[in-house]
Design a protein around this nucleic acid. Structure first.
Length: 556
RNA sequence: GCCCCGAUAGCUCAAUUGGAUAGAGCAACGGUCUUCUAAACCGUAGGCUACAGGUUCGAUUCCUGUUCGGGGUACCA
């Protein structure tokens, strides 16, 4: 590729940072200076220019010269080689700071308005299939606030991937067999008998929530008063179906829908459990002890071996997990993302070890663990448990705060940190919540555009963008340009939080601009230029809010 | 014991993966609407980044140890 072509692509492909980096590298090699690791980045403080590099600092050791001296020499060589620059200077211990000219920023307005929803969109995931598994709660009770975090996180991660062009399958894996479901059935049975006036107790380890009563009542309405305790399956099936309905409804309220509900039972009925067990057996990774079947996990780094089949003949959860992941791999996804709560952190290594023992590649599986949600009420922690009745459900939370607020709250923090949800705060959040701050910014933008029409500025397509000069305007555009970088970060870390924080900054920059500068005025030329600006910000804000799954109202 | 997360302003959290003077929002105090939405903006105050070492020109960020919280370490899921 010709140098000129390459330069064109890099520069107009947005990354001024890359251009500067390349020019510095060229200069250094012309000087015969050694290659060294250095950064080219946006400094925190605007006083240090728009982009800053530490190259002189990192070179100083190898060249045995003062960093400032190197910086000044480098600046002399860089003069005139980078377009749209208004200044290059050195400061502090020897940083080189680059300041861009307004023209650089102005050019972005046109680009944003041209590409709209596709602005800075890079289809890294084009022709790539990704599966995101999340929520995966067993149908034993309504979704809790903890599930809510995973639900919103998973859906936004899916949206981030979709934005990058991936073809995404949202998947929900659930277990509708086994001990927990039996406890559910017994719990419903007990309530059913109580409804019939009989004496019956919830079994040890059963579910005591109020919702079990509701299910028993519905069950009685549908099947009458003479259903016998054996077999238990009608109770289990009915309860599971009811609960699943409420789970789907809760997710739906948050705008979340799964493409595939994968049922653990299918792993049994299709013989996949047997098959993977046989595979492990034949490979020599299993042995029997105490009537149970063990997997030699310690050969793969685990501190001890694990039971796959209990001495009762019933598999532990690990075995279906292994079979399920083998199935995920078989289905041919390019990327497999598992989202689990922190309590699952010990289980994945076993699954991975088993898959690797069988020779399956697991490099494309990414496990994301999110920390717990702590619920507080008036500063006091509330312990959550599905079995006992003392938990707040996701539905109750949505009732309290609304879907947009709930989604935003869940996406405000990195998944590595605990999320503190103060119920009292959530309730009074109605008018001081950050989500409204974003939505208000969007509504303001829409309102300005409507207002301009009323003022008979029908079209602002032809505008002189060179009129966009003020510091508040340039600061705003600078943040708009950052969008690409933020999306890259979201893609590599799968942390929607970066986008949440970014949009907040974008809204702040807009509100500040709005307060200082009036958009629609008697000065028609200036008005048109500013209308283009507003239109461009609105595009980016709306794109970002869509990815977070938060509505962007036109009026508030 | 071992493993995984966390510890930053009174509270809840940031700090774009090692940069220059650590920033926001709440809460407190003061200011700004005859003009596109004041759900906004501006200002004041608030810090030994849990503690002790180490690496580096440079550490909230990386390493080691300690303390305190949360979660694991099941023939529960």
């Amino acid at each position: 590729m010709h140098k000129a072509t390459c330069f064109f692509m890099v520069f107009f492909g947005n990354s001024m940072i890359e251009t500067i980096r390349r020019k510095i590298e060229e200069c250094c090699s012309e000087q015969g200076w050694p290659q060294t690791a250095f950064t080219v980045e946006r400094p925190r403080d605007r006083a240090f220019g728009h982009v800053s590099t530490n190259i002189a600092l990192t070179l100083s050791k190898e060249l045995k010269r003062a960093p400032r001296e190197i910086a000044e020499e480098l600046i002399r060589h860089l003069q005139g080689k980078i377009p749209d620059l208004s200044a290059i200077d050195t400061a502090g211990p020897g940083f080189i700071n680059f300041t861009f000219s307004p023209a650089y920023f102005q050019a972005f307005i046109t680009r944003i308005r041209k590409s709209r929803a596709d602005f800075q969109r890079e289809l890294r995931g084009k022709d790539r299939k990704v599966q995101v598994e999340f929520v995966s709660a067993n149908p034993t009770g309504p979704l809790t606030i903890g599930h809510g975090r995973q639900a919103v996180l998973g859906d936004s991660i899916a949206r981030i991937l979709e934005w990058h062009g991936y073809s995404v399958t949202r998947e929900y894996y659930f277990n509708d067999a086994g001990r927990q479901m039996r406890m559910l059935g017994l719990s419903v049975l007990a309530r059913y008998r109580q409804l019939l006036g009989e004496k019956a107790d919830i079994p040890e380890g059963g579910y005591e929530g109020e919702y079990i009563f509701d299910i028993a009542r519905d069950f009685r309405r549908q099947f009458g008063d003479s259903v016998s305790a054996e077999p238990l399956s009608p109770f289990i099936d009915f309860a599971a179906q009811q609960i699943f309905g409420t789970i789907r409804d809760s997710l739906q309220r948050l705008g979340i829908r799964h493409d595939v509900y994968y049922n653990e039972k299918d792993l049994y009925s299709s013989g996949k459990i047997e098959a993977v067990l046989k595979e492990l057996e034949e490979a020599g990774f299993l042995y029997r002890e105490g009537g149970a079947t063990w997997f030699r996990a310690s050969q793969f780094g685990a501190e001890k071996d694990r039971v796959l089949v209990k001495n009762t003949g019933e598999p532990t959860y690990r075995l279906p997990d292994i079979a399920y992941h083998k199935e995920k791999i078989r289905r041919g996804f390019d990327l497999i993302i598992d989202i689990f709560g922190a309590d699952h952190h010990a289980t994945y290594p076993d699954v991975k070890a088993a898959l690797e023992a069988l020779g399956y590649a697991t490099g494309h599986i990414r496990v994301l663990l999110h920390q717990f949600v702590t619920l507080t009420r008036d500063g006091e922690k509330i312990k959550m448990s599905t079995r006992k009745a003392n938990f707040v459900t996701l539905d109750e939370l949505i009732d309290l705060a609304g879907a947009d607020v709930v989604r935003y709250f869940y996406l405000m923090r990195s998944m590595d940190s605990h999320l503190n949800f103060d119920i009292a705060l959530a309730q009074k959040q109605s008018d001081e919540n950050p989500v409204f701050y974003l939505q208000y910014a969007h509504a303001r933008m829409c309102n300005i555009l409507v207002h301009s029409k009323e003022k008979h500025i029908d079209s602002y397509e032809a505008a002189d963008l060179a009129l966009l000069q003020e510091p508040e305007v340039l600061a705003l555009i600078e943040i708009m340009i950052e969008f690409k970088e933020i999306m890259e970060l979201c893609h590599s870390t799968l942390e929607p939080m970066y986008l949440t924080n970014y949009l907040y900054r974008l809204a702040t920059a807009f509100h500040k601009f709005y307060t200082v500068h009036r958009v629609v005025t008697e000065d028609v030329a200036l008005s048109k230029a500013r209308l283009q600006l507003v239109d461009a910000v609105k595009t980016i804000l709306a794109n970002g809010m869509y990815i977070l799954g938060i509505s962007a109202p036109e009026k508030m």
